[in-house]
Write a protein that binds this DNA or RNA. Sequence first.
DNA 1: TTTCTAAACAGGAATCATTCCTATCAATTA
DNA 2: TAATTGATAGGAATGATTCCTGTTTAGAAA
Lengths: 147, 147
Amino acid sequence: MNLTEVKEHIVKSGLKATHQRMIVLQNLSNDSSHPTAEKLYDSLQMYNPSLSLSTVYRILDDLVEVGLINQVATKGGIKRYDANITPHNHIYCNITNEIFDFYDEELHQVIKDFFEKKQIANFKISDIKMQVNGFKVDLDQKVSFKQ
Amino acid sequence: MNLTEVKEHIVKSGLKATHQRMIVLQNLSNDSSHPTAEKLYDSLQMYNPSLSLSTVYRILDDLVEVGLINQVATKGGIKRYDANITPHNHIYCNITNEIFDFYDEELHQVIKDFFEKKQIANFKISDIKMQVNGFKVDLDQKVSFKQ
DNA sequence: TTTCTAAACAGGAATCATTCCTATCAATTA
DNA sequence: TAATTGATAGGAATGATTCCTGTTTAGAAA
């Protein structure tokens, strides 16, 4: 995303488009590594030395709150973030701690159908996420989901 | 699980069946709330005042390591544990932070088939977890998965 | 454009979950 | 019994996150 798009998204969400919010969202939207707050802070430091770490944390919370980004569930106890808010699932590498996105229309449909047919009593579903855990075979090579 | 069963499991895993390990595993196996380390520590305190919190943390790590329990991935950044090591998925309530287990044979099979057909290049899958996020409709009532 | 005000921010302190460290304890073997 | 090894208690240290307070800023109103 470029700055103009970022600004539009933030304004549409109801938040003020402050400089700090824009650069945090832009940086996250151009980073597919599902970074932590601290990692984003580090990336931004070079060109925005006055940005504070607590601001990054608060902005990330706010962006999650209004639904512009997602917090990724991990076992590690460290929060990671994802600007991809389209439906998708995650592949976790237990060795490198990398997280990769994947999406398959057919799989999505099957799961959607399943939960329309079978009900969970007293529970309203907002979204369904799948986590594929495992490990990279060759750590130097990329992981890719083949259609 | 009773103490005898717990002891058998621990010995079979290769760890020594110490008193602390047994009570931690027993307590967790009789608790379906997917508790945190601290919550387990609190439950055990009453009858085991000399048990230390750091021991609980270390024992949980050890039990995860040998595969007797699982660490549950959450967005909250706080680690939770699950003694149910059979294949199953989780339902998360965003209001109460409760986690419920569910399992469906048909769904399990569909997903298994899917990942046998479609490959992820350079990645070896160890397990696949699904998270159903949403919220309880009536907070005082139970959530139940209907077959 | 300038002024005003609520919202947002910077920077550092505080908190909370978790891990680390070290002396002690328990079990096993010689 | 003594020696060795692994496990624990208890507290200190660490790391991630949140909180607090004074200052700044965005955007509305004049």
